[in-house]
Protein backbone atom coordinates (compact mmCIF):
# COMPACT_ATOMS: atom_id res chain seq x y z
CA UNK A 1 0.00 0.00 0.00
CA UNK A 2 1.23 3.51 -0.83
CA UNK A 3 0.11 5.95 1.85
CA UNK A 4 0.52 9.64 1.26
CA UNK A 5 -1.53 10.81 4.21
CA UNK A 6 -0.29 12.33 7.43
CA UNK A 7 -2.77 10.27 9.48
CA UNK A 8 -1.42 7.37 11.49
CA UNK A 9 -3.97 4.56 11.27
CA UNK A 10 -1.98 2.36 13.65
CA UNK A 11 -2.82 4.54 16.64
CA UNK A 12 -5.90 3.86 18.75
CA UNK A 13 -9.14 5.72 18.10
CA UNK A 14 -9.37 9.23 19.41
CA UNK A 15 -12.26 11.58 19.78
CA UNK A 16 -10.86 14.05 17.24
CA UNK A 17 -11.61 11.99 14.14
CA UNK A 18 -15.17 11.37 13.05
CA UNK A 19 -14.28 7.93 11.77
CA UNK A 20 -11.38 5.60 12.49
CA UNK A 21 -11.26 2.32 10.60
CA UNK A 22 -8.55 -0.10 11.65
CA UNK A 23 -7.46 -3.28 9.87
CA UNK A 24 -10.94 -4.35 8.74
CA UNK A 25 -11.08 -7.89 7.41
CA UNK A 26 -14.14 -9.69 6.11
CA UNK A 27 -14.30 -13.07 4.37
CA UNK A 28 -17.19 -14.68 2.50
CA UNK A 29 -16.26 -18.34 2.43
CA UNK A 30 -13.01 -18.60 0.51
CA UNK A 31 -13.22 -15.03 -0.75
CA UNK A 32 -11.52 -12.27 1.24
CA UNK A 33 -13.71 -9.32 0.34
CA UNK A 34 -11.99 -6.80 2.61
CA UNK A 35 -8.35 -7.27 3.52
CA UNK A 36 -6.92 -5.03 6.22
CA UNK A 37 -8.57 -1.71 5.33
CA UNK A 38 -7.59 1.24 7.55
CA UNK A 39 -8.28 4.95 7.24
CA UNK A 40 -9.49 7.98 9.17
CA UNK A 41 -11.82 10.84 8.40
CA UNK A 42 -11.38 14.20 10.09
CA UNK A 43 -14.31 16.51 10.94
CA UNK A 44 -15.53 18.36 7.85
CA UNK A 45 -13.50 16.19 5.50
CA UNK A 46 -14.86 14.53 2.37
CA UNK A 47 -13.12 11.21 1.96
CA UNK A 48 -13.44 9.19 -1.23
CA UNK A 49 -13.07 5.48 -1.76
CA UNK A 50 -12.35 4.92 -5.45
CA UNK A 51 -12.34 1.46 -6.93
CA UNK A 52 -13.98 -0.79 -9.50
CA UNK A 53 -17.02 -2.95 -8.85
CA UNK A 54 -16.14 -5.85 -6.57
CA UNK A 55 -13.23 -4.02 -4.95
CA UNK A 56 -14.77 -4.34 -1.47
CA UNK A 57 -16.22 -0.83 -1.14
CA UNK A 58 -19.78 -1.82 -0.20
CA UNK A 59 -18.62 -4.55 2.19
CA UNK A 60 -16.41 -1.99 3.93
CA UNK A 61 -19.33 0.47 4.12
CA UNK A 62 -21.56 -2.27 5.59
CA UNK A 63 -19.05 -2.83 8.40
CA UNK A 64 -18.59 0.89 8.97
CA UNK A 65 -22.38 1.41 9.21
CA UNK A 66 -22.78 -1.49 11.63
CA UNK A 67 -24.70 -3.70 9.22
CA UNK A 68 -22.02 -6.36 9.07
CA UNK A 69 -19.67 -7.65 11.72
CA UNK A 70 -16.00 -7.67 10.66
CA UNK A 71 -14.02 -10.87 11.02
CA UNK A 72 -11.31 -8.71 12.54
CA UNK A 73 -10.49 -5.05 12.92
CA UNK A 74 -12.57 -2.23 14.34
CA UNK A 75 -14.60 0.84 13.46
CA UNK A 76 -14.90 3.85 15.77
CA UNK A 77 -17.36 6.65 15.10
CA UNK A 78 -16.48 9.78 17.09
CA UNK A 79 -14.60 7.55 19.50
CA UNK A 80 -17.45 5.02 19.94
CA UNK A 81 -16.95 1.43 18.86
CA UNK A 82 -19.34 0.52 16.03
CA UNK A 83 -21.02 -2.86 15.60
CA UNK A 84 -24.40 -4.33 14.58
CA UNK A 85 -25.70 -4.09 18.17
CA UNK A 86 -24.34 -0.59 18.90
CA UNK A 87 -27.04 2.04 19.03
CA UNK A 88 -25.07 5.17 20.01
CA UNK A 89 -22.64 5.41 17.09
CA UNK A 90 -25.39 4.63 14.57
CA UNK A 91 -27.12 7.86 15.57
CA UNK A 92 -24.04 9.76 14.37
CA UNK A 93 -24.15 8.26 10.87
CA UNK A 94 -26.34 8.97 7.89
CA UNK A 95 -26.24 6.01 5.52
CA UNK A 96 -27.16 6.31 1.87
CA UNK A 97 -27.03 2.73 0.57
CA UNK A 98 -26.02 1.93 -2.99
CA UNK A 99 -29.42 0.35 -3.62
CA UNK A 100 -32.47 2.57 -3.28
CA UNK A 101 -33.83 2.28 0.25
CA UNK A 102 -37.20 4.03 0.16
CA UNK A 103 -40.81 2.91 0.43
CA UNK A 104 -42.39 3.25 -3.02
CA UNK A 105 -45.94 3.41 -1.62
CA UNK A 106 -45.12 6.38 0.62
CA UNK A 107 -44.69 9.95 -0.52
CA UNK A 108 -41.34 11.72 -0.31
CA UNK A 109 -42.43 13.57 2.83
CA UNK A 110 -43.78 10.37 4.42
CA UNK A 111 -40.50 8.56 3.74
CA UNK A 112 -38.56 11.39 5.34
CA UNK A 113 -40.86 11.59 8.37
CA UNK A 114 -40.77 7.81 8.88
CA UNK A 115 -36.98 7.58 8.94
CA UNK A 116 -36.77 10.86 10.85
CA UNK A 117 -38.84 9.39 13.67
CA UNK A 118 -36.59 6.34 13.76
CA UNK A 119 -33.64 8.75 14.07
CA UNK A 120 -35.29 10.26 17.11
CA UNK A 121 -36.70 13.42 15.52
CA UNK A 122 -40.23 14.52 16.28
CA UNK A 123 -42.72 17.37 16.38
CA UNK A 124 -41.76 20.74 14.97
CA UNK A 125 -38.12 19.72 14.50
CA UNK A 126 -39.11 16.81 12.28
CA UNK A 127 -41.46 18.99 10.24
CA UNK A 128 -38.89 21.72 9.71
CA UNK A 129 -36.08 19.27 8.86
CA UNK A 130 -38.38 17.48 6.41
CA UNK A 131 -39.08 20.77 4.64
CA UNK A 132 -35.40 21.73 4.64
CA UNK A 133 -34.26 18.41 3.22
CA UNK A 134 -36.99 18.42 0.57
CA UNK A 135 -35.63 21.81 -0.44
CA UNK A 136 -32.01 20.59 -0.47
CA UNK A 137 -32.82 17.62 -2.70
CA UNK A 138 -35.15 19.67 -4.92
CA UNK A 139 -38.33 17.71 -4.23
CA UNK A 140 -40.41 20.29 -2.36
CA UNK A 141 -42.95 20.46 -5.17
CA UNK A 142 -43.31 16.65 -5.20
CA UNK A 143 -43.39 16.19 -1.41
CA UNK A 144 -46.80 14.53 -1.40
CA UNK A 145 -46.36 12.35 -4.49
CA UNK A 146 -45.91 8.60 -4.06
CA UNK A 147 -42.26 7.85 -4.76
CA UNK A 148 -43.16 4.96 -7.09
CA UNK A 149 -44.10 7.69 -9.57
CA UNK A 150 -40.65 9.32 -9.32
CA UNK A 151 -37.89 9.14 -11.93
CA UNK A 152 -34.70 7.26 -11.06
CA UNK A 153 -32.88 10.51 -10.35
CA UNK A 154 -35.61 11.79 -8.03
CA UNK A 155 -35.55 8.51 -6.10
CA UNK A 156 -31.77 8.78 -5.77
CA UNK A 157 -32.08 12.30 -4.41
CA UNK A 158 -34.69 11.19 -1.88
CA UNK A 159 -32.41 8.29 -0.96
CA UNK A 160 -29.72 10.83 -0.10
CA UNK A 161 -32.16 13.14 1.67
CA UNK A 162 -33.12 10.43 4.16
CA UNK A 163 -29.47 10.11 5.14
CA UNK A 164 -29.20 13.87 5.75
CA UNK A 165 -32.35 14.31 7.78
CA UNK A 166 -30.90 14.09 11.28
CA UNK A 167 -27.77 16.13 10.52
CA UNK A 168 -25.35 13.22 10.96
CA UNK A 169 -21.76 13.75 12.00
CA UNK A 170 -20.73 11.55 9.07
CA UNK A 171 -22.71 11.05 5.87
CA UNK A 172 -21.90 7.79 4.08
CA UNK A 173 -22.75 7.74 0.39
CA UNK A 174 -22.23 4.39 -1.30
CA UNK A 175 -22.07 4.95 -5.07
CA UNK A 176 -24.99 7.41 -5.04
CA UNK A 177 -24.87 8.20 -8.76
CA UNK A 178 -25.04 4.67 -10.17
CA UNK A 179 -27.73 4.49 -12.85
CA UNK A 180 -28.52 8.21 -12.68
CA UNK A 181 -28.97 10.52 -15.68
CA UNK A 182 -26.33 13.28 -16.11
CA UNK A 183 -28.63 16.05 -14.89
CA UNK A 184 -29.57 14.27 -11.67
CA UNK A 185 -25.97 13.19 -11.22
CA UNK A 186 -24.82 16.79 -11.33
CA UNK A 187 -27.56 17.75 -8.89
CA UNK A 188 -26.40 15.05 -6.47
CA UNK A 189 -22.79 16.12 -6.72
CA UNK A 190 -23.76 19.75 -6.09
CA UNK A 191 -25.72 18.65 -3.00
CA UNK A 192 -22.70 16.79 -1.64
CA UNK A 193 -20.47 19.80 -2.32
CA UNK A 194 -22.91 22.02 -0.44
CA UNK A 195 -22.95 19.67 2.54
CA UNK A 196 -19.16 19.59 2.61
CA UNK A 197 -19.10 23.37 2.54
CA UNK A 198 -21.39 23.39 5.57
CA UNK A 199 -18.81 21.27 7.41
CA UNK A 200 -20.39 17.82 7.27
CA UNK A 201 -17.95 14.91 7.08
CA UNK A 202 -18.62 12.69 4.09
CA UNK A 203 -17.47 9.20 3.14
CA UNK A 204 -18.06 8.81 -0.60
CA UNK A 205 -17.51 5.61 -2.54
CA UNK A 206 -17.48 5.60 -6.31
CA UNK A 207 -15.96 4.02 -9.35
CA UNK A 208 -16.15 7.31 -11.27
CA UNK A 209 -12.77 9.04 -11.19
CA UNK A 210 -14.26 12.46 -11.99
CA UNK A 211 -16.56 12.32 -8.94
CA UNK A 212 -13.70 11.46 -6.62
CA UNK A 213 -11.53 14.22 -8.10
CA UNK A 214 -14.34 16.78 -7.88
CA UNK A 215 -15.63 16.05 -4.38
CA UNK A 216 -13.00 14.51 -2.19
CA UNK A 217 -10.31 16.07 0.00
CA UNK A 218 -8.57 12.73 0.24
CA UNK A 219 -9.03 9.54 -1.72
CA UNK A 220 -8.30 5.87 -1.06
CA UNK A 221 -7.78 3.77 -4.17
CA UNK A 222 -9.03 0.27 -3.46
CA UNK A 223 -8.77 -2.96 -5.37
CA UNK A 224 -9.17 -6.61 -4.37
CA UNK A 225 -10.29 -5.64 -0.88
CA UNK A 226 -7.20 -3.55 -0.09
CA UNK A 227 -6.32 0.12 -0.10
CA UNK A 228 -3.66 0.43 -2.79
CA UNK A 229 -2.93 4.09 -2.12
CA UNK A 230 -4.36 6.96 -0.13
CA UNK A 231 -3.88 10.70 -0.20
CA UNK A 232 -4.97 13.95 -1.82
CA UNK A 233 -5.37 14.00 -5.59
CA UNK A 234 -1.99 15.70 -5.97
CA UNK A 235 -0.30 13.20 -3.67
CA UNK A 236 -1.78 10.27 -5.54
CA UNK A 237 -0.80 11.56 -8.95
CA UNK A 238 2.72 12.06 -7.65
CA UNK A 239 2.87 8.27 -7.33
CA UNK A 240 3.07 7.94 -11.09
CA UNK A 241 5.81 10.61 -11.10
CA UNK A 242 6.56 12.07 -14.51
CA UNK A 243 4.52 9.46 -16.32
CA UNK A 244 2.08 10.62 -18.99
CA UNK A 245 -0.70 8.90 -20.85
CA UNK A 246 -0.78 8.41 -24.61
CA UNK A 247 -3.99 7.19 -26.27
CA UNK A 248 -3.77 5.58 -29.68
CA UNK A 249 -7.05 5.09 -31.59
CA UNK A 250 -7.12 3.14 -34.81
CA UNK A 251 -7.72 -0.13 -36.60
CA UNK A 252 -5.74 -3.06 -37.96
CA UNK A 253 -3.76 -5.43 -35.76
CA UNK A 254 -4.32 -3.80 -32.37
CA UNK A 255 -3.11 -6.83 -30.39
CA UNK A 256 0.18 -7.00 -32.28
CA UNK A 257 0.68 -3.27 -31.74
CA UNK A 258 0.04 -3.65 -27.98
CA UNK A 259 2.67 -6.41 -27.83
CA UNK A 260 5.21 -4.34 -29.72
CA UNK A 261 4.63 -1.25 -27.58
CA UNK A 262 5.01 -3.15 -24.30
CA UNK A 263 8.58 -3.91 -25.32
CA UNK A 264 9.52 -0.25 -25.69
CA UNK A 265 11.65 1.02 -22.74
CA UNK A 266 9.62 4.25 -22.36
CA UNK A 267 6.32 2.40 -21.97
CA UNK A 268 5.24 1.39 -18.42
CA UNK A 269 1.77 -0.09 -19.10
CA UNK A 270 -0.37 -0.84 -22.11
CA UNK A 271 -4.11 -1.24 -21.77
CA UNK A 272 -6.24 -2.38 -24.71
CA UNK A 273 -9.83 -1.12 -24.91
CA UNK A 274 -11.45 -2.23 -28.17
CA UNK A 275 -9.74 -0.08 -30.84
CA UNK A 276 -7.88 2.09 -28.34
CA UNK A 277 -4.50 1.55 -26.71
CA UNK A 278 -3.82 3.47 -23.50
CA UNK A 279 -0.15 3.74 -22.68
CA UNK A 280 1.51 4.97 -19.50
CA UNK A 281 4.85 6.36 -20.68
CA UNK A 282 7.86 8.31 -19.48
CA UNK A 283 8.82 11.49 -21.35
CA UNK A 284 5.82 11.37 -23.66
CA UNK A 285 6.86 14.27 -25.92
CA UNK A 286 10.13 12.55 -26.88
CA UNK A 287 8.75 8.98 -26.85
CA UNK A 288 5.65 9.56 -28.97
CA UNK A 289 7.41 9.35 -32.35
CA UNK A 290 8.90 5.92 -31.57
CA UNK A 291 5.53 4.73 -30.26
CA UNK A 292 3.71 5.77 -33.42
CA UNK A 293 6.34 4.06 -35.57
CA UNK A 294 6.23 0.84 -33.55
CA UNK A 295 2.42 0.70 -33.70
CA UNK A 296 2.44 1.24 -37.47
CA UNK A 297 5.08 -1.42 -38.06
CA UNK A 298 3.02 -3.89 -35.97
CA UNK A 299 0.06 -3.43 -38.27
CA UNK A 300 -2.03 -0.80 -36.51
CA UNK A 301 -3.48 1.94 -38.69
CA UNK A 302 -3.66 5.03 -36.47
CA UNK A 303 -6.61 7.40 -36.59
CA UNK A 304 -5.80 9.57 -33.57
CA UNK A 305 -3.00 10.11 -31.06
CA UNK A 306 -3.54 12.01 -27.78
CA UNK A 307 -1.08 12.86 -25.02
CA UNK A 308 -2.45 13.75 -21.56
CA UNK A 309 -1.19 14.39 -18.06
CA UNK A 310 -1.86 11.60 -15.56
CA UNK A 311 -5.12 11.54 -13.58
CA UNK A 312 -6.52 9.20 -10.94
CA UNK A 313 -7.32 6.66 -13.60
CA UNK A 314 -3.65 6.68 -14.59
CA UNK A 315 -2.77 6.14 -10.94
CA UNK A 316 -5.16 3.23 -10.72
CA UNK A 317 -3.74 1.77 -13.92
CA UNK A 318 -0.22 2.22 -12.58
CA UNK A 319 -1.04 0.58 -9.24
CA UNK A 320 -3.22 -2.31 -10.39
CA UNK A 321 -2.45 -2.77 -14.07
CA UNK A 322 -6.11 -2.48 -14.98
CA UNK A 323 -8.72 0.17 -15.72
CA UNK A 324 -11.23 1.40 -13.12
CA UNK A 325 -14.19 0.00 -15.03
CA UNK A 326 -12.66 -3.52 -15.31
Amino acid sequence: MVTMTQHDTESPATGSDVLVVQDLVRNFGELRAVDGVSFRIAPGETYGVLGPNGAGKTTSISMIAGLLRPDSGSVHVAGQLMGPRQVGPKALLGLVPQELAIYPELSAAENLRFFGRLQGLGGAELRSRTDEVLDIIGLSDRAKSATKEFSGGMKRRLNIGIGLLHRPALLILDEPTVGVDPQSRNSILESVEALATEGMSVLYTTHYMEEAERLCDRIAIVDSGRIQAEGTRTELIRIVGELDEIRLDGSGDIAAAAGALERLPAVEHVLTEARTLRLTVREAPTAVAGIVNAAGQAGMELADVEISRPDLESVFLHLTGKALRD
Binding site: L67, R85, P97, L118
Partner: peptide, 15 residues
Amino acid sequence: QQGTLARLQAMPMPP
Protein backbone atom coordinates in the same frame (compact mmCIF):
# COMPACT_ATOMS: atom_id res chain seq x y z
CA GLN B 1 -35.68 -6.78 -1.63
CA GLN B 2 -36.40 -3.04 -1.81
CA GLY B 3 -33.28 -2.20 0.22
CA THR B 4 -35.04 -0.61 3.19
CA LEU B 5 -34.00 -3.41 5.57
CA ALA B 6 -30.36 -2.27 5.40
CA ARG B 7 -31.41 1.28 6.14
CA LEU B 8 -33.58 0.14 9.08
CA GLN B 9 -30.67 -1.87 10.47
CA ALA B 10 -28.49 1.24 10.28
CA MET B 11 -30.93 3.19 12.47
CA PRO B 12 -30.00 3.85 16.10
CA MET B 13 -32.08 1.07 17.62
CA PRO B 14 -31.55 -2.56 18.68
CA PRO B 15 -31.44 -4.81 15.58
